[in-house]
């Protein structure tokens, strides 16, 4: 098997190793979700190169990794989706009835991008979220970097976005190729 030690950063490998320890040795596939999460944290998307490296690292067929990566919406596979902060506005029934369209419109205007795009400075990725995020009681709602924000108004959205932006970033992105 072609070993590709340098494709995965030291940080990513440590993270994967940490998860691998929790499963029986012949069950490396169990660590796949975590491995892909580790890559997401670093790159904000999964490149084919990284997915192949994960496959090699866990001794899995490459297609197995592609299957898992493409199944879950928490993984992005397009480089264009690699923003530092991911915004996902729920547009499902409850949220829609409570005005999620306005929220979407507001964000699009504010950031100057359409849903599914990333701001030119790489700060925000505005994800197309298709499924109910299970917070209907607080509709309309959005998720920013996995944190839920409910009962949104345009003003509240501004505040939230400013707050993530002013902080350097929730995920420190340091090139770390050990």
């Amino acid at each position: 098997m072609a070993s590709t030690p340098n494709v995965l950063s030291k940080h990513e490998r440590d993270d994967i190793d940490h998860w691998l320890k929790r499963y029986p040795e012949d069950q490396s596939q169990s660590a796949l979700l975590a491995a892909l999460r580790a890559v997401m944290h670093e790159d904000h998307y999964l490149s084919i190169e990284k997915m192949d490296a994960v496959a090699d690292y866990l001794s899995l067929p490459k297609i197995t990794v592609y299957e898992v990566a493409s199944f879950y919406s928490m993984y992005e596979m397009d480089e264009k989706a690699a923003g530092k902060n991911t915004i996902a506005v729920c547009t499902n029934v409850s949220c829609m009835l409570n005005g999620s369209d306005k929220i979407v419109e507001h964000i699009e205007e504010k950031l100057g991008i359409k849903m599914g795009e990333t701001t030119p400075d790489g700060e925000f990725f505005f994800k197309i979220e298709e499924e109910c995020l299970a917070a209907c009681c607080g509709a309309p709602m959005m998720q920013v970097n996995h944190v839920y924000h409910e009962n949104l108004t345009p003003e509240k959205v501004d505040e939230i976005l400013e707050s993530v932006k002013t902080k350097p970033s929730l995920h420190k992105k340091e090139a770390n190729n050990g």
Partner: peptide, 10 residues
């Protein structure tokens, strides 16, 4: 004995 095809997406 080799996985070449798979089901991607959902």
């Amino acid at each position: 004995g080799m996985r070449e095809l798979g089901a991607t997406g959902r």
